[in-house]
Nucleic acid binder design. Structure first.
Ligand code: MN
Ligand code: MN
Ligand code: MN
Ligand code: MN
Lengths: 143, 143
DNA sequence: AAGGCAGTATAGCACAGGCTATATTCCGCG
DNA sequence: CGCGGAATATAGCCTGTGCTATACTGCCTT
């Protein structure tokens, strides 16, 4: 018997995984942005988050609520939003991954502006293994 | 004045674009799969679509309904699902892009299985420009 | 100290995309 | 022929992510 047991995921698993990544994509972008705002302005206000994300203010408020539920952020009503340790760690990982994805795209010939645009979506589907491959490729390139 | 007018999209635009791509991702995967099923089995039944997508049958039925509304598919109740001309054209573009994304990932050192997994999500965020760059890169590589 | 405005939260709506449970239809077989 | 099981559709639920309209707070300014 060829034994494909527990080896190659099938098509359905692949789709399920993509759906899962999509579900966390928004949270990743939010924590990254909140981290940016805190670094830039010292605080992350809901209005600024909404503006930078391109959504209405109540939408940002609601998503921040989800971040709180997931243990990624805290917020005092009518005050700013803060990242938990887990949130800050995620933000840093996401930011680094974003940069690597952009760099990889540019390295294979994608124009900078396009790389920035496409990376915003692509990044969330780049696994640890793929990220490692990207980094290795970039290192070789530069050598 | 540096004049950034109508040139670089800002952060909010970038996020909006990623959200838009995400909204059509599911439709793309469905039409590609329906095309595959028709090619393989001569017809695309809702049960097979559901099974291959890894969702429950009513979920597939509902999404097929959306494909119909968007002019990508037709379906006769209790019979199979068919692609419109637009749907078939989209399926072909999506299938080709999928293959190119997998090939690019492998070309930069991503293991095949990982490439297949990640490509399922990445593909939907690869713009025409990025796709063209990928193709050019692959062509050079092989030369 | 108080008022007003800006910022935030809440209410309530729509739609996508999951699900289970159930109704309906089709079709092959006895 | 007609019946029963398989396939499909429908009903009804939940959550997420958007929106607008409106209520509430906090704080700056007079
Ligand atoms: Mn992103
Ligand atoms: Mn990003
Ligand atoms: Mn896909
Ligand atoms: Mn695909």
């Amino acid at each position: 018997m060829p034994d494909r047991t527990a080896s190659a995921p099938n098509e359905a698993d692949r789709f399920a995984r993509a759906r899962e990544k999509q579900a966390v994509a928004l949270l990743e972008d939010y924590v990254e942005l909140i981290g940016d705002l805190i670094a830039e302005a010292g605080e992350a206000r809901v209005a600024d988050i909404a503006h930078r994300m391109g959504v209405a203010q109540p939408t940002a408020t609601k998503t921040v609520g989800r971040l709180k539920r997931e243990g990624l952020a805290t917020a005092r009503p009518y005050r700013g939003v803060f990242l938990t340790e887990a949130g800050a760690a995620l933000a840093n990982r996401v930011r680094a991954r974003h940069r690597t994805v952009v760099a990889l795209l540019k390295a294979v010939g994608v124009p900078e502006a396009t790389a920035e645009l496409d990376a915003e979506g692509i990044e969330h589907h780049v696994s640890e293994k793929t990220l490692a491959a990207f980094e290795a490729f970039l290192k070789d390139r530069q050598a």
